[in-house]
Nucleic acid binder design. Sequence first.
DNA 1: CAACACTAAGTGCATTATGCAAATAGAAGA
DNA 2: TCTTCTATTTGCATAATGCACTTAGTGTTG
Lengths: 144, 144
Amino acid sequence: MSRQNVLNGESSEYAAYLRAERLLQPGLLLLLSLRPMHGYELIQMLNGVAFTGEESDPATVYRNLRRMEDDGLVHSQWEAGESGPARRVYHLTVEGEHLLDMMAANARRRREQLEAFLRLFENIRGGLITQENIEEVMKGDEVR
Amino acid sequence: MSRQNVLNGESSEYAAYLRAERLLQPGLLLLLSLRPMHGYELIQMLNGVAFTGEESDPATVYRNLRRMEDDGLVHSQWEAGESGPARRVYHLTVEGEHLLDMMAANARRRREQLEAFLRLFENIRGGLITQENIEEVMKGDEVR
DNA sequence: CAACACTAAGTGCATTATGCAAATAGAAGA
DNA sequence: TCTTCTATTTGCATAATGCACTTAGTGTTG
């Protein structure tokens, strides 16, 4: 299966990106939605930003950018910087913008899942689980 | 390096579990903190619970349980059910309980990262990003 | 009673993604 | 000149997952 045109098929084509648990790919698209940037700059931005945990591995970042370009989410062109070696400057495509929106929706879902997990964790730790409320608690409801 | 005693070394030994983005392993430990269960039951519980996305693959669940046993987080013994084939019943160990606590702390950190990402996303989408506030926004602060 | 479905656990294999190390290379400064 | 910083890329081992399949006990239905 080709990696081209991930956004032009059924929703299953998005799946690989939306299944991604790390915020690396969403973060890259988000930063690129601000303005075009090259990989090295993106890495520095990511390391200064609050939503990434540890430092990003450059190899992973560069590889993800290339894959995203294969998938039509970003587009790149070489630019000679005023200093240092040439840089490959990436900018977001319309498809990438759409996927970013979906990633944000996905992030909201994952936030809710985390909250459901933490609620259940705290209810169990707090000893609030009984035979009666175990069913509702499992569904993620608040213990009354 | 052995998989034994993940909890008896430095914090780097925990890393593999705490880096896990899926809530599968935390979910298994959390359910087992409620009462001992066998794999098949855990799978059904996970599929009915709010914090797991899609259905869990049985192979992945069983393999994770075995690995967790290797790592001393759970312990199992065969039990002949009153009907059907024999089941391997897992229960949480003290080490598993400790790791569960750490996973919860980790889940809170990841929730905060998701929130930082979504905040930035909404600020950019809302056009609230200027040359002046871009620095603070990057650090995850609220736009004033 | 034969076929089927459900319970329960496990194996095999291909695919995918990551982390780490290292290679390449331009440019600026000591 | 040697080193350091900027900038991108490749190679390789490892790890985890998804899917398909196997094994096997038990109950049900035609």
